Amino acid sequence: MDQQHQLSKTSVALHWIVALFIIGLSIVGLVMSKKEIWFLYPIHKSIGTLIFALILIRVVWRVRQAWPKPIRQYARYEQVLSKIVHWTLITGTVLMPISGMLMSGVGGHGIALFGWELVAEHHSPTQPDQALPYSVFWAGVGESGHEIIAYILIAAIVLHIAGALKHHIMDRDATLRRMLGQDVSEQ
């Protein structure tokens, strides 16, 4: 159970596992799309599909636990910015894999989990090396959404890290230490 002075091991673990995977998948996604490194796509999709299960668990956990209470009282603008960034992160981490699965599955590329087919590929009968979308519109929505959400998530992650460092370095409060799993009740 989360408390103001210490977060549960479950909260800390879910936060860091999801955070590291989202950051890693975002970096890999940017590199593979810009450099057209095709062999990374099945790995990216498989890890993204797996982490989606943990993301859903994290969302349910966060809803049941509520947001952690601040270590101390902050300025109103900091509270508002914090809420916006946290909601952007939690919403973005849910929408990112959904848009990716929509782009890939509806786009005819299929969805596989390390080779285990979840959604079959759909190829053109006349050009077997070309994916045939089930719906061009929804595949496009997924592709556009995946790209837009990626950039929004990256911006939110940067703001989140900057906020954590501000708490730790400038405010010298225990917010970051609490997120690392420490009991900060005597600080």
Rank of each mutant, 00 (worst) to 15 (best):
K69L: 10
P70L: 05
P70S: 05
P70D: 08
P70A: 13
R72M: 09
Q73C: 07
Q73K: 09
Q73M: 11
Q73H: 12
Y74A: 06
Y74G: 03
Y74P: 04
Y77N: 10
Y77V: 13
Y77G: 08
Y77Q: 11
E78V: 07
Q79C: 08
V80E: 07
L81G: 15
S82K: 04
I84K: 06
H86L: 11
W87Y: 14
T88Q: 09
L89T: 02
L89E: 07
I90G: 05
T91V: 15
G92P: 14
G92A: 10
T93R: 02
T93V: 15
V94P: 01
L95R: 00
L95W: 02
M96K: 06
M96E: 11
P97C: 04
I98T: 01
S99V: 02
S99K: 04
S99G: 09
G100N: 12
M101S: 01
L102E: 06
L102W: 09
L102M: 13
M103Y: 05
M103W: 15
S104L: 03
S104Y: 04
G105Q: 03
G107H: 07
G107D: 00
G107L: 00
G107R: 09
G110P: 00
G110T: 05
G110F: 03
G110C: 10
I111M: 04
L113Y: 01
L113F: 01
L113G: 02
F114C: 03
W116A: 12
W116P: 01
E117Q: 12
V119R: 05
A120T: 08
A120I: 09
A120L: 08
A120S: 12
A120C: 10
H122Y: 13
H122P: 01
H122D: 07
H122W: 08
H123C: 13
H123A: 14
S124N: 15
P125M: 05
P125Q: 10
P125S: 11
T126V: 13
Q127Y: 12
Q127T: 11
P128S: 01
P128M: 04
Q130W: 08
Q130A: 14
A131C: 04
L132H: 13
S135T: 08
S135Y: 10
V136I: 14
V136D: 13
F137Q: 09
F137H: 04
F137L: 12
W138F: 15
W138T: 07
W138V: 07
W138R: 07
A139D: 07
A139H: 06
G140D: 11
V141D: 02
G142A: 08
G142M: 01
E143I: 12
E143M: 07
E143P: 03
S144R: 14
G145L: 08
E147N: 12
A150Q: 14
A150P: 11
Y151D: 05
Y151C: 08
L153C: 10
I154Q: 12
I154S: 06
I157P: 15
V158F: 06
V158R: 10
L159C: 15
L159Q: 05
L159I: 15
H160S: 02
I161A: 10
I161H: 12
I161V: 15
A162G: 09
A162W: 02
A162K: 05
G163A: 14
L165H: 05
L165K: 02
K166E: 00
K166R: 14
H167A: 01
I169H: 00
M170A: 15
D171W: 02
D171F: 00
D171S: 04
R172S: 03
R172V: 02
R172A: 09
A174L: 05
T175S: 06
T175E: 02
